[in-house]
Design a binder for these strands. Structure first.
Lengths: 128, 128
DNA sequence: TTCTATACTTCCCTTAAGGAAACCATGGCG
DNA sequence: CGCCATGGTTTCCTTAAGGGAAGTATAGAA
């Protein structure tokens, strides 16, 4: 009724917002693939990473890596050499995220069939 | 060397593709919020759902729900009444996804601080 | 007959994502 | 002096996402 009632539902708390943001981050096209590609390895070079991830554009890989670095999930080490060499490694935090994501990965892995079956059924030309 | 060698790296297997797709799906702006809003409830109406999720546009809510239905994660029941009534409920499959996602949710919840700290550090005006 | 509420659907428009390709800096090599 | 490789950055362009608003169908109430 009063001015402060203009937006009656804050909709999301600050934390919720961050959670949502992180979920989006985690699920954007490349982040997970990068984390996956880095898991269990150390000091992976940009080019190797690019090969491992698949068909990322250079731009997107760079961007993704910067974001991950900013969030403290990977470390970036530049070697002052003549053909430049930059190596990426998961931080402990990044590792733990990898583990958490693993649960989802497993779910998908376990239920691909279910989902596909459901889709086929849904897409089937309406009987009759 | 031969013709079939044109694309030497399939980059992703069929399953990988689906996994990636599901991850993207899960992480699009609304899916998780919808699943979250449906957890532990039954027969939630469209409008209630919309309130619960936040500021979704009608269009996006509908689209998201269709996708979830197609994937077998929610059930959609239409009541032939005069003000139409449609109710949504998580299927067991949807429930299990909710549980799987929970792991990530917890991770984010547990590490928001770490991430924020890292960001502040990263964004800090370069010392000196 | 007109109005109402609900759950869509469709159209239009703006913004954002993201790829391609070109450019840059580096220092040793031939 | 070109030229190479690596890891970027920048520009341009196309596509996709997604919001707003209007339209649709429905049967009963008034």
């Amino acid at each position: 009724m009063a001015v402060h009632d203009v937006k009656p539902r804050p909709v999301v708390s600050k934390k919720d917002a961050l959670v949502r943001e992180m979920l989006e981050r985690v699920a954007d096209k490349w982040t997970l693939l990068v984390i996956d590609a880095l898991e269990g390895k150390r000091d992976v070079r940009f080019s190797r990473l690019r090969e491992a991830v698949g068909d990322v554009s250079q731009k997107m890989l760079t961007k993704t890596l910067r974001q991950l670095e900013r969030d403290g999930l990977i470390s970036r080490r530049v070697h002052a050499e003549v053909p430049p060499r930059v190596e990426y490694t998961l931080t402990p935090l990044g590792d733990s995220l990898g583990a958490a994501v693993c649960g989802m990965w497993k779910w998908v892995d376990a239920h691909v069939e279910d989902v596909e079956r459901s889709r086929r059924k849904y897409d089937a030309p309406a009987q009759r």
